[in-house]
């Protein structure tokens, strides 16, 4: 009898473990991420849709995770005329073509440690999609694990997807940032660029154009480069307790909302994802970022290096 009961409880345990791995049935901690191993065993799971958003959109055709749909960050996720994220109608069209329903578990991944996959996750969240996750380690981890790649573009059956109105609470505008700088609003500012950009020594990192005519950072911002959140060897996120410490050292503990920004406004989504989804902290993404702030007329900046664009 006892033997049977222990067997039964073992079975129950097994079921519980299995249930924890099923999308939509797990706890908040892992609701943000899936592992490469798990994803490789769930490629045909009908409740999933895998979406690649890579900095280099052409990398998809050279081999992608089987079944994944390609989304191009510079044309599919933005309004190419206004400097804005994609419109609600545009997003609905995109999601319909990707065969999504509001219940679909969306797993995003991409190159460069999920930089723009995280940005995709932010936009999906802005338009109210419920279950949005990242593949931990993105393309890098998948390739390191030598998991299979496919070159056939997925052609999912189109749906009619209805998005929610854009959630403005996830997005900071220049006026919101200025309110923080002027002390009218209480929030933390987090700059995720390199220390040299933050300190105004350089205007842009190597290999990219200088887009702002001033160097430095938003007054009061703290600097935690995005890369501190990942394990360099495989691109996976660090453990939540390590992440907590990294951001606590910069004075960010989730007690007040944090506004994250970078240079052109996409990369900071990576840190936005860490703060909101892995640590549960309130955070907004300032997608105008330094390209807007550093060029805005009549706003205060902090430039410790004292560089002047065009030379002193």
């Amino acid at each position: 009898m006892r033997h049977i009961r222990s067997n039964a409880s073992f079975l129950a345990l097994l079921l519980a473990v299995a249930a924890a791995w099923l999308p939509g049935a797990d706890d908040a901690g892992s609701k943000a991420l899936v592992t490469a191993d798990w994803l490789s065993k769930n490629l045909t799971n009908p409740t999933l849709r895998i979406i690649e958003v890579s900095v280099d959109p052409g990398v998809y055709e050279k081999g992608h995770i089987p079944g994944a749909v390609n989304v191009r960050w510079h044309s599919d996720l933005v309004d190419t005329v206004r400097r804005d994220i994609i419109s609600k109608e545009g997003f609905e069209k995109l999601a319909s073509q990707a065969g999504l329903t509001p219940e679909t578990t969306v797993v995003l991944y991409g190159d460069n440690n999920n930089w723009f996959a995280a940005w995709g996750a932010w936009i999906f969240t802005v338009y109210g999609h419920q279950d949005v996750r990242l593949l931990d380690g993105g393309r890098k981890k998948w390739e390191l694990d030598k998991l299979p790649l496919d070159t056939i573009a997925a052609a999912p059956k189109a749906t009619t997807y209805q998005a929610k109105a854009a959630n403005g609470a996830l997005r900071a505008r220049l006026s919101d940032v200025l309110a923080v700088v002027e002390g009218k609003d209480k929030a933390g500012l987090l700059d995720i660029r390199s220390p040299d950009e933050f300190n105004g020594k350089i205007f842009a990192p190597q290999g990219v154009q200088e887009l702002a005519i001033r160097a430095g950072h938003i007054p009061g911002a703290k600097n935690v480069p995005w890369g501190k959140a990942v394990n360099q060897e495989d691109g996976t996120f660090k453990k939540p307790e390590d992440l907590k410490k990294i951001y606590a050292d910069a004075g960010i503990d989730g007690s007040t909302p944090t506004v994250v920004y970078c240079r052109i406004g996409e990369r900071s989504s990576h840190t936005w994802f860490v703060l909101t989804r892995l640590l549960g902290y309130p955070a907004k993404q300032y997608d105008g970022s330094w390209t807007e702030y550093g060029n805005a007329v009549g706003v205060p900046i902090d430039n410790p290096a004292g560089t002047v664009w065009g030379g002193k």
């Binding site: 959109p57 052409g58 998809y60 055709e61 191009r72 070159t151 056939i152 573009a153 052609a155």
Partner: peptide, 18 residues
């Protein structure tokens, strides 16, 4: 044959990469 696998519907406005 290869491009047909990459860009399933050419009328959507995306060019095949590469």
């Amino acid at each position: 044959i290869v491009l047909g696998a990459w860009i399933v519907d050419p009328s959507r406005g995306h060019l095949p990469p590469i």
